[in-house]
Write a protein that binds this DNA or RNA. Sequence first.
DNA 1: AGGAACATGACAACATATTGTCAATATGTT
DNA 2: AACATATTGACAATATGTTGTCATGTTCCT
Lengths: 147, 147
Amino acid sequence: MNESPEDIFTKIVLEIFKVSGMLNTEGDMMAEEFGLSSARWKVLGAIAQAEQLLTVSEIARTVGQSRQATQRLVDALKKASLICFISNPKHKRAKFVVLTKYGEQVFWKLWHKQLPWAASGAEALTTAELLTTFSAMKKLSGYFSGN
Amino acid sequence: MNESPEDIFTKIVLEIFKVSGMLNTEGDMMAEEFGLSSARWKVLGAIAQAEQLLTVSEIARTVGQSRQATQRLVDALKKASLICFISNPKHKRAKFVVLTKYGEQVFWKLWHKQLPWAASGAEALTTAELLTTFSAMKKLSGYFSGN
DNA sequence: AGGAACATGACAACATATTGTCAATATGTT
DNA sequence: AACATATTGACAATATGTTGTCATGTTCCT
């Protein structure tokens, strides 16, 4: 069966939708123990792993979502005492978001829980598939964001 | 920088989330002209391209989503006169979902609109990336659904 | 300085997706 | 036939995500 590039591309798109939903469910299950969800975990991770202090808008750009969706998740994390705001000398309203002690503890526990999960998942693919898929995903997110 | 398979896997996961959101936005833009969204388009496509008549539950399994989410989309498509139900001799309640004439017209118009879009997207990747990424995505959806 | 353009947080409306539950219907076993 | 089990559609609650809008704050240009 000789398929054109656009046919394969379309199939990839549909498969990405499917896998994305599955990964969300996986993340929800892993994070449930800590009262978190995939969505909140993603935001927590973006803050924890950033090299600089981030504002809500910057977190949104990091995870590739709207400012507004991210704001809601940050508010939920604050309510759960996982993060707090600190003042930003560069901007009166756009405060920095930082993890609390508790937030850091939860993030690291999740990190350690996620490692073997990721190792198992990685075993489902060959090394070539891992590397090439990552390369392709980066190209796609770049392509659709115009970079 | 020598990265472990689990690190790459984790990065792929985060990138899949990002790309999935972008593709949703792309689909929304393409489908808007026909009063559709990515989500409804996906359901329409599953029905249009199926080799057999499908019930709502079967559509849900095809697109990899919950029965309930799919039911809502099907109801919306029915309200928009894109699909209709026909009786299923095998099951009193689980009717078959089929495209209306109008639904078929819209699906084909979208198909033709999507083709050049997919061709452009495919050009962002190498042939190897296309093939390997598709293979990897299939493996992942299989892995997480236990097949 | 002043004013235009842009970025940000806040709030709201809506679409989408998951989970949970219930009753109706099939299916499979004895 | 009768019962247990699973599937299905229907309905509801909740979380997540997008878009739109507004007021505030920042930046850039002249």
